[in-house]
Computed example of a mutant assay.
Amino acid sequence: MLINAQLYLIIFFTQSLMRLFQTHIDIVDDFDQDLIEQLLVLAKKHDFMIFEDRKFADIGNTVKHQYGNGIYRIASWSDITNAHGVPGEGIITGLKEVGLPLGRGLLLLAEMSSKGALTYGEYTTQTIEMARRNQDFVMGFITQRCINEHPDEDFIAMSPGIGLDVTGDGLGQQYRTPRQVIVESGCDLIIVGRGIYGKGRDVQAEGRRYQEAGWSAYQERISQ
């Protein structure tokens, strides 16, 4: 089986500091372990980490089994995954039981890029507090801004909804440019999907374009 790039989202940040390949493994029609084996070979060859955008959102016992078992066995191959804070801190505990012994990391969804998202206010505040109590496993956030507030905090801020050409998609997604995300909002990584693999796009050319835009924004930020 060959990996179909149109089924995946790609994260670009700088030219060398960190590269992630983001998957939505449950939308692959012909999933099997051969795909995972190919993906792991590519990750080693091209030096990138794998981020399964699972967005777990259930009680601790349920997510523990969703993460470690089932047909996908996400924890066995994905370096990073993510979860909503809605169920409470038990969701972190359940995922941690599986992921921490394997050296995995968790992102919490503090804010989303879609129009009308309810990830703000008290939800965001409580999600951040849960992360602070679990820094041995929670490595950062899906967010629209840098969340670090204290001297000892070093959470990674990954921002979705990145676009150089459009501002929306008709289904609620809202796009910002790499500069808006990295320079103005202080985020660390940009998450790029359809801007790279969308219909009629040259994947390699667009990948380089977004990588260069992200790198340029990062250089501007550190020069300030």
Rank of each mutant, 00 (worst) to 15 (best):
A5S: 15
G193H: 03
H65G: 00
M18N: 05
V166R: 06
A205P: 00
I196E: 07
G121I: 08
G193P: 03
Q33S: 11
D30F: 02
T14V: 07
S216H: 09
G172T: 05
G94K: 10
E89V: 15
I71R: 13
H24G: 02
M1A: 13
R73A: 09
A131H: 12
T119L: 13
T119K: 03
R132I: 08
L2V: 10
L17C: 13
A5I: 15
A117V: 02
V98A: 10
G103K: 09
F56M: 03
M112G: 04
I156M: 13
G163W: 04
V166P: 00
Q38V: 12
D202G: 02
I36V: 15
V203A: 00
P178W: 03
G195D: 00
L189Y: 14
K115S: 12
D34Q: 14
G94F: 03
I91N: 11
V166Y: 00
I91Q: 12
D58N: 08
I3L: 15
Q33G: 11
I156A: 12
L20S: 03
K96T: 03
I36P: 15
G88K: 12
Q135Y: 01
G200H: 09
G193L: 06
R145K: 15
R104K: 12
L189Q: 08
L100K: 14
A131M: 08
I128S: 04
D47S: 15
Q174T: 11
G85E: 09
G198K: 14
G168L: 13
D136I: 04
N69K: 11
G207I: 05
G161P: 02
G105S: 08
L35N: 15
H24W: 07
F12K: 06
F13P: 03
G68R: 07
R209D: 14
Q33K: 14
F12A: 15
R54Q: 01
V166N: 00
G105P: 02
A217E: 14
Q144W: 04
S216A: 08
F21V: 09
N4K: 15
F12P: 11
D58A: 07
D79S: 09
Y210A: 14
E52M: 00
M158H: 13
G161N: 04
I11Q: 06
G186Q: 12
I36D: 15
K64N: 05
G121L: 04
P178N: 03
G105H: 05
Q211W: 07
M1Y: 01
Y175I: 00
I27S: 07
A117D: 02
L100V: 05
G214W: 01
S159G: 05
F155S: 14
G99C: 05
I27W: 05
